[in-house]
Simulated assay, not measured.
Amino acid sequence: MNDPIKLSQLPAMHEDYALTGQEIQSYQENGHIVLRGVASAEEIGIYEPIMSQWVQKLNKQDKPLHERDTYGKAFIQITNLWKKSEEVARFVLARRFAKIAAELMGVEAVRIYHDQALYKEPGGGHTPWHQDQIYWPLDTANTITMWMPLVPISVEVGSMTFASKSQEAGYISKTVISDESHRTLQQFIDAKGYEKVNHGAMAAGDATFHAGWTLHSAPGNPTETMRKVITIIYYADGTQVAEPDSNARKSDLDAWLPGCLPGQPAASHLNPVAYSATHK
C-alpha cells in the first residue's frame, strides 16, 4: 500500500479539544455524549482513505449478507488497525481523543484497549442492544468507547441509540451481541424506563463517547453507501485484570491483554498509555 503522504506529514492531533464542565457532568450522569468536530474535515479526509484501504485488505467476510447471522449482518469488523499501520496508529493513539476520554471519566491517564473499524454495508442489519464491557476482563467501571464516523451519517442511516443512565446498572447479562441480547435487553430497558437517546445525524469527525456498561444499539443501513466508523476503547491506567467469567472474556484476555493475569495490571504491549495528565 503506497500512500503518498509521509508519516511525518500526517496530522498528529495533539491539540486539546475543550470540554465544558456541563459536558463532563452530562456524560457521567447519562453514560454517553455526542461531541461535534472532534476531528476536522481535513484530518478525516486524510485518514479515512488509509483506514478504508486497510479494512478492504483485511476483510475476510465473503458470505453475502443474507447468509450471515445477525452479528455478521451488522458490520464488517476489523480490530487493532493501529498495529497494522503506522499511519493508522498516529490516528488511534492521538492525544486529543485520549484526553477527552480521560476527562469524561475523570481519571488521570488512559490506556488503549483496542480499536475497531465497524463498516456497516449497504443493506447491513441492525446492531442489537448490548453492553460492550461484557467482553472485557477489566476490573473497573472506568471504560469508554469513542465512536467516530469517517463519512457523514444521515438520520436515515442512523448513529447509535443509548439507554441513558443504564451504565448505573453495571453488569446486566453475559449474553453476547445477538437476537437474544436485543430481545432481553429491550425488555430490561422498558422495565426500567430508561430514556432512549439518539444523537441524530453526524458529520465525519463528530464522535459519541459511551461508558462500557451503557446499553446501546444501532439501526441497519438502508442506503447504498457504506457507513464507515472507527471506534477506540480506553480504560483508566492502573486498572487490574478481572477474573474472566465467560468464554467471551477469556478470548478477550488472550487477544487484547496478552501475558496479563487476573489481579495484575492490565498493561500489555498492546495497551499503551495514550494520555496522562502528568506528562504534557
Rank of each mutant, 00 (worst) to 15 (best):
W129S: 10
G124E: 11
G158A: 10
G158E: 08
T145M: 07
P149H: 14
T127F: 05
L138I: 12
H126S: 14
I144L: 12
I144N: 02
V157H: 03
I153Y: 11
T161S: 10
Y135K: 13
M160H: 08
M148D: 01
T143W: 00
T161P: 00
V155E: 15
T127M: 04
D139C: 07
I144S: 01
D139V: 11
T145W: 05
P152N: 15
T143P: 03
V155N: 12
I134Q: 03
A141G: 07
W147C: 05
V155C: 09
V155F: 10
G125D: 07
S154Y: 00
T143N: 01
W129E: 06
W136Q: 14
T161G: 02
T161Y: 08
W136H: 15
T140A: 04
G158R: 10
T145P: 00
H130N: 09
T161F: 03
Q133M: 06
N142V: 10
Q133A: 10
I153F: 12
I144F: 02
Q133V: 00
L138T: 10
I153T: 11
Q133I: 06
M146E: 08
P137G: 15
E156A: 03
Y135E: 14
G158N: 07
T145F: 05
F162C: 01
P149I: 05
L150K: 13
N142A: 13
L150W: 14
T140Q: 03
T143R: 06
N142R: 01
I153C: 11
M160C: 13
M146I: 12
W147T: 09
T127R: 00
Q131C: 03
F162P: 10
Q133G: 03
A141W: 00
T145I: 12
W147R: 03
Q131F: 06
P149R: 12
L150H: 14
L138P: 05
L150V: 11
T143V: 14
P128L: 08
N142Q: 08
E156C: 00
V151G: 06
Q133L: 04
A141M: 08
M148H: 08
T161Q: 11
E156Q: 10
S159L: 03
G125S: 08
H126R: 15
Y135F: 15
T140W: 05
E156V: 04
L138V: 12
H126A: 14
P128C: 07
W147S: 03
M160R: 10
I153M: 15
H130M: 09
M160D: 00
L138S: 04
Q131N: 07
M148E: 02
T143H: 06
V151D: 15
I144Y: 00
T145N: 08
Y135C: 15
V157R: 09
L150R: 13
G124T: 12
T127K: 02
W136E: 13
P152Y: 08
Y135N: 15
W136S: 09
I144M: 06
Q131P: 06
T143D: 02
W136I: 11
Q131I: 10
S154L: 02
I144E: 03
H130R: 02
W147Q: 01
V155W: 06
T127C: 05
W136C: 08
Q133Y: 06
P149V: 13
H130W: 10
A141R: 04
V151P: 02
H130P: 07
V157C: 13
P128G: 05
T127Q: 01
N142H: 14
I144P: 04
I134W: 00
Q133K: 13
V151M: 11
W147I: 10
I153W: 11
D132A: 10
